[in-house]
Amino acid sequence: MIEIQRIHHVSLAVTDIEQAKNFYKDILCLEEIERPQFGFPGAWYQIGNQQLHLIVHPEAETLRATNELSSKEGHFAFRVKSYDETVRWLKEKGVEIYENPTSKSGFAQIFVADPDGNLIELNTEQ
């Protein structure tokens, strides 16, 4: 039997590391951490006890062909402290968002896409 303890990291393919780093640092306010020299560009971020790994791979099959926001496509979610503050911050930064404050999931949702179209949910308790 496999006993999964937690998610360690999520890896996302990106095409332009500097553009991606600007989004994850300046828009989502993530803390970049040291990354081993793998011989290809990327960046790692610490998020609580988990990590987000960005990998430059323009030919990746996982890149979405659109930045259209939808709650039905594959995505990962960050829990945020304040729904209203997060919406205000994203709008102030000019980020397109899809709001779902009364989701049937039981938590208020905000969806954004990074520069490569990777879909990210930001949520809080309703």
Rank of each mutant, 00 (worst) to 15 (best):
K81E: 15
I55W: 09
E96F: 09
H9G: 11
V112R: 01
G106L: 02
A60S: 15
V112P: 03
D114Y: 02
Q19P: 00
D26I: 10
S105V: 14
E85T: 12
Q46H: 05
L122K: 02
K91R: 15
K72H: 09
V10K: 00
A108R: 07
Q5E: 12
W44F: 14
L63D: 06
A108L: 08
L12I: 10
N100P: 00
P58N: 12
E73M: 11
G39R: 04
E96P: 00
K25E: 15
D16S: 04
H8W: 12
L119V: 01
E73F: 08
L119C: 04
Q50S: 14
L28W: 06
I33S: 11
K21F: 02
E18S: 00
E59F: 04
K91N: 12
Y24I: 02
V95P: 07
R88P: 07
E18L: 08
E61M: 12
E18G: 00
F23V: 07
H9Q: 12
T102F: 15
N22C: 10
H75K: 09
R35Q: 00
F40S: 09
G42L: 03
I33M: 12
L30W: 00
E59N: 15
N22R: 14
N67R: 14
H53V: 05
Q19W: 12
K93L: 13
P101I: 09
G42N: 03
D116R: 00
E61G: 13
Q19A: 14
P58V: 08
I120S: 03
L52M: 03
C29E: 15
G117W: 00
Y83D: 02
D116Q: 06
A13N: 09
E92F: 11
F107C: 09
A43G: 05
K93C: 13
L28E: 02
G74Q: 10
F107S: 04
E34T: 10
G117K: 04
G94A: 06
K81R: 15
Q51E: 12
E31D: 14
F111N: 03
V80F: 08
R88S: 09
E59Y: 11
D84P: 08
G42R: 01
R35V: 00
K21R: 15
A43R: 02
Q109A: 03
H57W: 11
R64L: 07
L69T: 00
Q37K: 13
I55S: 10
T66C: 10
F111T: 00
L52V: 03
Q19Y: 05
I7P: 05
L90M: 08
S105P: 03
R79E: 14
Q51Y: 10
N100G: 01
Y98T: 09
A77N: 09
D26N: 14
H9Y: 10
I97Q: 01
V10W: 05
R79T: 11
Q50P: 04
F78P: 00
S82L: 04
A60M: 09
L28A: 01
F40Y: 12
Q50H: 06
I97R: 02
A77Y: 06
E73K: 14
K91G: 12
H57D: 10
A43W: 04
W89H: 13
E73D: 13
V87K: 11
I33P: 07
F107A: 02
K25Q: 14
G48D: 08
P101Y: 11
Q5H: 11
G42E: 07
S103V: 04
Q109C: 07
H9A: 07
Q5T: 13
Q19D: 07
F111D: 06
G42S: 01
I7V: 13
N49D: 15
E68S: 14
R88I: 13
T15N: 14
